[in-house]
Design a binder for these strands. Structure first.
Lengths: 201, 201
DNA sequence: GTGTACGCCTAACAGTGTTAGTGTCAACCC
DNA sequence: GGGTTGACACTAACACTGTTAGGCGTACAC
């Protein structure tokens, strides 16, 4: 009863994950079911479990696939703030390119993210400031990506139209401005702490 | 066959939503099913549809319930930045109190949020700066709440332990510092634009 | 006492993730 | 070439999910 394998490309973990991301990109997270995914690959749902432990592993695979798009090519800016602004702008771009995967962000601790934290520390931050700045920037970018890709029903009739119109736009420029603002503020606070001892007053 | 209604409190929309939030708070979003919810109320699933159109309406009700906790009591700070910092710190606190509802944030445009935007404009911002600042702060707070309540598996062994330990803490103080940093940066940019014309130098 | 409307019920449909057991094909060993 | 083995995909089923249709019992109005 088994159909001939020759008819179609062999099912592999890679093909499963790639197809899954394609479905999610095109039709959203809810459209991704094991039966639908299998059907797209010309196979029954149960067969997928030979290549993948469960649906969670498929979702993890999707996250990995998206993350692999984060690589930047040289040349890199000399200034460390410019560099981080560039990195996070890229992060935002990739998230927006796969809007429906944003709610999957943070399924695992992000190795690349963890690389960046020691880097920030090397700029002379205190540990606490470095962690706070890092968490703030990451939170902002993910939050901004989430907000910008959510198509909110247009209940905002009570806003002046000039405002309402602008509230529907989520320019990348804002990502750059805000990331820079956060980093500069924490950097300034750090250097102030070295100069004067703020003990209360 | 119908059981006597006298045995239990009557099922109402309010009781449904309240119980739903209790389930979500205690056991997470996935634990909330119509059958489970009905069972908690001593009723069958189908009966809920007499009081509620569908599950989405229950979720909307949850969002409304959480939002009702956002009210602040006077006295309010005089400085507008202090005021906004207070508001968003409170916003963060409420979100963290109901961690599993964070992914529901943004189901509808937030009336309260929309109130705040004209308020920011009244501080002398340009329209574009006001919108950018507003979107940035909201995005940051929601993102920060989302990150801080996600229990990420401890893959971070490769981080220095002092760092790893601090990365697990998400202090409210950071919310206040970052919100203030963003607002001050955009405010400064606005007032600069009034003084000097930055045309590229 | 009768009529009516409401509130809840059972039963069912179409869909979900997942597992057990079975079959079939392809490649390897001798 | 014949037999064995193992990988792969199949069917069938289980326990769930949200949702709808239709019926029954209770409580209230007149």
């Amino acid at each position: 009863m088994a159909t001939k394998r020759v008819d179609r490309a062999p099912v592999t973990r890679d093909r499963i994950v790639t197809r899954a991301l394609a479905i999610v990109d095109a039709e959203g997270l809810e459209a991704l079911s094991m039966r639908r995914l299998a059907s797209d690959l010309g196979v029954e749902a149960a067969s997928l479990y030979h290549h993948v432990r469960n649906k969670d592993e498929v979702l993890d695979g999707i996250v990995g696939l998206v993350r692999s798009e984060l690589r930047l090519e040289p040349p890199f800016p000399d200034d460390w703030i410019d560099l981080l602004v560039l990195i996070f702008a890229r992060y935002y771009t990739v998230l927006v390119a796969h809007p429906h995967t944003i709610s999957l962000a943070g399924r695992h601790v992000d190795t690349d993210e963890a690389d960046g934290l020691p880097f920030i520390l090397a700029q002379g931050f205190s540990i606490d400031d470095a962690v706070a700045a890092w968490q703030s920037v990451v939170s902002f970018v993910i939050g901004y990506a989430a907000m910008s890709t959510r198509q909110i029903p247009g209940d905002s009739d009570y806003l002046p139209s000039a405002l309402a119109e602008r509230m529907t736009r989520w320019p990348t420029e804002t990502v750059e401005r805000t990331v820079r603002a956060i980093l500069e503020a924490y950097a300034a606070a750090g250097s102030n702490a070295l100069k004067v001892q703020p003990s209360g007053g």
